[in-house]
Amino acid sequence: MDRTGDAAAAAGLHLALARDADARRRIVQMAGEFRPYDRYGPPRAGFSWRNLSWDAGTKAGCFLLKWEAGAKSEPHVHERGEEFLILEGGLVDSDGKRFQAGDYIVYDPGTHHFSTAPEGGCLMLVFLRGPNRFDPA
């Protein structure tokens, strides 16, 4: 994906964190680059991310996740659920279901799966409700 900012801009996202006059509200301005995907320790090859509101303590929040073509997630279980919106490209889930730009996917708590990004990669907006448990079964 060579148009990394196009989808974010189209979604009305502005890439730096700022507080406005109301200290209870944060405004995320999307300046700078995505960083290596290191939410689970050492950076994962084929993935980069932009934290919007994800909290390391609760393991919940929102972030942009970029997948390079061929990137594959580890098999995992969503302990509290996950939702995501495909902004660019697509994904193929472990059951063969294909997701494309514009699809909004909801995984209920207890869902077990993994996904792969086909040619062209994927850019998604992720809403993670709690931790994932890695489970190869």
Rank of each mutant, 00 (worst) to 15 (best):
A16E: 08
A18H: 08
D20W: 01
D20T: 10
D20G: 12
A21E: 14
A21H: 14
A21F: 13
A21P: 15
D22F: 09
D22A: 13
D22W: 09
A23Q: 09
A23W: 07
R24A: 10
R24C: 09
R25T: 14
R26S: 15
R26M: 15
R26N: 14
R26T: 15
I27L: 15
V28G: 10
V28Q: 04
Q29K: 13
Q29P: 01
Q29T: 15
A31C: 11
A31I: 10
G32L: 09
G32K: 07
E33P: 10
P36G: 11
Y37W: 11
Y37Q: 04
D38K: 12
D38E: 13
R39C: 00
Y40T: 05
Y40V: 08
Y40M: 04
Y40G: 06
G41V: 05
P42F: 01
P43V: 02
R44L: 08
A45V: 12
G46C: 08
G46Q: 10
F47D: 05
F47S: 03
R50M: 04
L52I: 15
L52G: 10
W54R: 01
D55N: 13
A56K: 04
A56V: 01
G57T: 13
G57Q: 11
G57S: 15
T58A: 14
T58K: 14
A60M: 02
A60D: 02
A60N: 03
C62A: 08
L65H: 01
K66S: 11
K66P: 00
W67Q: 00
E68D: 14
E68K: 04
G70V: 00
K72M: 13
S73Q: 02
E74A: 12
E74Q: 12
P75V: 06
P75G: 06
P75T: 10
H76S: 00
V77Y: 06
E79A: 10
E79I: 11
E79N: 12
R80Y: 06
G81K: 03
G81S: 06
E82N: 13
E82D: 12
E82T: 01
E82C: 08
F84Y: 11
F84T: 00
G89I: 03
V92S: 06
V92K: 02
V92H: 07
D95Q: 13
G96I: 03
G96R: 06
K97W: 07
F99R: 10
F99P: 08
Q100T: 15
Q100F: 10
Q100G: 14
Q100M: 10
D103H: 15
Y104I: 09
I105D: 09
Y107S: 03
Y107C: 05
D108T: 02
D108L: 05
D108V: 01
P109T: 11
T111R: 02
T111F: 00
T111M: 00
H113E: 04
F114L: 03
P118C: 03
P118V: 06
E119G: 12
E119C: 09
E119S: 15
G120P: 04
G120F: 04
G121M: 09
G121D: 05
G121P: 13
C122I: 05
C122R: 02
L123I: 06
L123Q: 11
L128W: 00
L128N: 02
R129Q: 07
R129I: 00
G130F: 08
G130N: 01
